[in-house]
């Protein structure tokens, strides 16, 4: 594992910690898209089917369990926790996420590394992750004002994607047979979605001002 991959995993982990912190500390999930969070649950469950068949390392196994567990905990809080669910901005979270699930699955049936149950679900999870942030980004755009922790959450998620791209560039030059075009292309698409957010994030950071997205 190279430093970029590790940095990517850590920023991914930090983003989840920031989100859990926001929900637990403020007992509020305002500004957070339940649809994006539900998509992440599907992404992790579909991708980590290999938990039972392939052992990579203790690190990989632990991280997989953490990602599955934390995404389930977030969705549970937003749906079931009495105080938290009241703060969910349902009227701002109207993205039709079923289309994303359906589209990703059809794409996985067409484009995959191997036509096996696990590989189809792996490709599906890669495609779905690429678009899973969209309901959240649309929600931020709609509400305009972004609270600090929600802004940090999306920032760290974007940083995770950026580090993964550096990781692939590094692997491409250091590993003789590294060719993961499904993951790399989807990763590029996914990271591109964050470009706009990053632009406004850095402007607000430079001006030491509250993060605001244009309507």
């Amino acid at each position: 594992m190279n430093i970029f991959r590790f940095a990517g995993d850590m920023t991914h982990l930090i983003s989840i910690v920031v989100l859990l912190l926001k929900i637990y500390a403020t007992k509020s999930c305002s500004g957070i898209s339940l649809k994006t969070q539900e998509l992440y649950v599907i992404v992790f469950l579909a991708r980590y089917l290999d938990l039972f068949t392939d052992f990579i390392s203790v690190y990989n196994t632990v991280m997989k369990l953490v990602f599955i567990g934390s995404s389930l905990a977030i969705v549970w809080c937003m749906r079931m926790h009495r105080a938290v669910k009241r703060t969910y901005d349902k009227e701002l979270d109207t993205f039709r996420h079923y289309f994303l699930v359906l589209g990703s699955f059809v794409l996985a049936l067409l484009l995959h590394e191997k036509f096996t149950f696990q590989e189809i679900f792996w490709a599906f999870s890669i495609y779905l992750e690429a678009v899973a942030i969209l309901p959240q980004l649309v929600m931020l755009q709609r509400s305009g004002n972004v609270d600090n922790l929600t802004g940090q959450y999306v920032f760290f998620l974007g940083a995770y994607r950026a580090f993964y791209i550096l990781n692939w560039i590094y692997r491409f030059f250091t590993e003789p047979h590294f060719s993961r075009w499904i993951a790399c292309l989807s990763g590029l698409v996914q990271t591109a979605f964050y470009a706009d957010f990053f632009y406004y994030y850095f402007i607000s950071w430079k001006n030491n001002a509250k993060l605001q997205l244009p309507a």
């Binding site: 290999d50 990579i56 990989n60 993951a183």
Partner: peptide, 10 residues
């Protein structure tokens, strides 16, 4: 032949 490599990323 294509090598079978398990998915080693998260």
């Amino acid at each position: 032949a294509v090598e079978e490599v398990p998915h080693d990323e998260l």
